[in-house]
Amino acid sequence: MSTPYLEFLRAELAPGLMEGLWVSVLVIVPSALLGVLIGLTAGVLRVYGPTPVRKITEAYVSLFRGTPLVVQVFFWYFALPYIKIAGWSLVLDPIEASILAFGMCSGAYQSEYIRGGLNSIKRGQIRAALALGMTTRQAVLNIVLPQAFRRALPGCGNEIIYLIKYSSLASIITVNELTGTATTIAKNTWRNIEVFCTLGVYYLVLVTLAGWILHLIEDALSVPGFERPRT
């Protein structure tokens, strides 16, 4: 009847998933970077921004944390082209729409961790920096952010791990990343259980790798008083 699992994996499943894996990485890495960038910016604005800016960033965070990611993905892909500003509209291909959707959503969560990190740094250190003649900007960049980033890193890392998993949603707007590819193979071969269990292993490996990289970063930035909590 059908070929044994190992033969199926070698000949069909692994080569297919390998292609999907590259697409996944192509979506995940820029989304994660975008998310961290947006999260840093929004987090800083939420703590140090003038009130109107603070309100706007708060609204952004509520909106993107309060709506399902599927809806957001559909919005960027299907609805965005209908929004015309001065006669122009933006049409994104599926990969671009996914990166934007994941980056914006991730940024909302990242900003929470960054904000927590910023608030954990005692105001006295800013006063000390100002007293030395630093501008507020220099104090935030040189004194507060490096510490806040270290404090926020475990949370931000977790968020990136979630991002790796929810990147599978890109498949609903026809991106042939890991999950999209797996769905196609499953449909064509009727070997659902084997395909999706294997897919799970791929994500597990990705998440484990990301976890290692994050620990490497944490250790590289570790100084006394900011060590990674060991379990």
Partner: peptide, 12 residues
């Protein structure tokens, strides 16, 4: 120059 009661060293 300013010296504070609780030092306010930059912890990192």
């Amino acid at each position: 120059g300013m010296i504070f009661q609780d030092f306010n060293l930059f912890d990192h």
